[in-house]
Amino acid sequence: MKKSLFIGALLALGMAATTSGASTLEEVKARGTLNCGTSTGVAGFSLPDANNVYQGFDVAICRGIAAAVLGDPMAVEFVPTTGKTRFTALSSGEVDVLSRTTTWTFSRDVDLKMDFHGVNYYDGQGFMVPRSLGVTSAKDLDGATVCIQVGTTTELNLADFFRVNGITYEPVPTEKSSESRSLYQAEACDVYTTDASGLASARSTFADPSAHVILPEIVSKEPLGPVTRHGDNQWGDIVRWTLNALISAEELGITQANVAEMAAAPTNNPEINRMLGTEGNLGPMLGLDKDWAHRVIAAEGNYGEIFEKYLGVNTQIGLERGLNAQWTDGGLLYSPPFR
C-alpha cells in the first residue's frame, strides 16, 4: 500500500519530463506525412476539390516539400488555419510548414520567431467594389463600409491608407475570408479589401464576376511565402530550396514533362545537373537524397506551370504574371544559384 502510493507520486512527478526536441525533418520522416498549414479556403491558393483533395498554388508548395522529403507529393496532411490561428499552429508544432498567403513582415520574422523562406507570390492590397457604385479610385471611398479579415496585415494597411488620405471608413471585421465575401455580396459592406490575388480569387467565385471592379490602387507590399518555426535551420533550408528549385526550374526550362528525361543522364548545363543530382552532392547536403529536386518538379511542374495551372489567365482566377514573372522577363522572381 505504502509502496504503491509512492510509486504513484513518482509517476505523477515523472510527467514533468518534457519531450525532447527531435528535428522537424526526423519527425516528418518518422510520421510519414507532412503537416501543412493552409488557409480555410481561397480559390486558386488552397481549396479542396470535389474529391476532397486539396488543390492550389500554396498547396503545390507543400506537395513539393513532401515530394522532396518523403518521396510522395500526396503524403501531406493539410491543416486549415485562420488568420488568427496560423502562427500559433506553427509555433506549437501542429504544422511543420505554413503555406498560406502569409505576408513576410519584420515583426513576424523577428518578434514572432518565424522564418520566411523567400516569396512565392508578390502581392499587394487592393479594393474591390460593385461596378454599380461608380467608384473609380480608392480615394473616393470616404465614409464607406469595408469588409476585412481580422488578424491580417490587410487590417493595418487599411487603417494607414485611410488615415494618410484623411478619409474615414467603417471597418466590418470578420474571422474568415468567406464571411467577408458573404457580407460583401449581401452589400452589408461597400468594399471588400484583401490582397489583390485574393480579390481576383473571390471575384471568380461570384455569380457575376463582371459586376465587380478591382480599384487601381495597390496600397501595400505583400510578399507572400512559406514559413517555418525559428531555430530549425535544416528544415528551413529544405523549404527555402524547394521553392528555389521550383523557380529555378522555370528559368532553366525544366518542366514536369521533361524532368525525368533531364534527370536520367547529365545534360550539358551543369546547373541543371547539380539541381537534379546527376552531378555534385547538393541533395545530401540538405539531408535528402540526390533526386529530391527531380521529385519536387515532377510533383506539380515548375513555378510557371503551377502558376498557370491554378492562378493564370486561363483559369477562373485569371491573374497576370506581373511581378511574379522571372527576373529575365521583367518580374521579381530570382532564385539564388544551385551551386
Binding site: 488568427k84 500559433t88 481580422v150 488578424g151 491580417t152 487590417e155 493595418l156 471585421p173
Partner: peptide, 24 residues
C-alpha cells in the same frame, strides 16, 4: 462575438492585438 465581427474583449485584446503582436 468575434464570429460576427463584434469587437469585444475577445476581438480586440485576445484577437487582433494577439495576432499583431504575437503575444498569445
Amino acid at each position: 462575438a468575434i464570429a460576427v465581427g463584434y469587437m469585444d474583449l475577445t476581438g480586440t485584446l485576445m484577437g487582433i492585438t494577439l495576432n499583431q503582436t504575437g503575444r498569445e
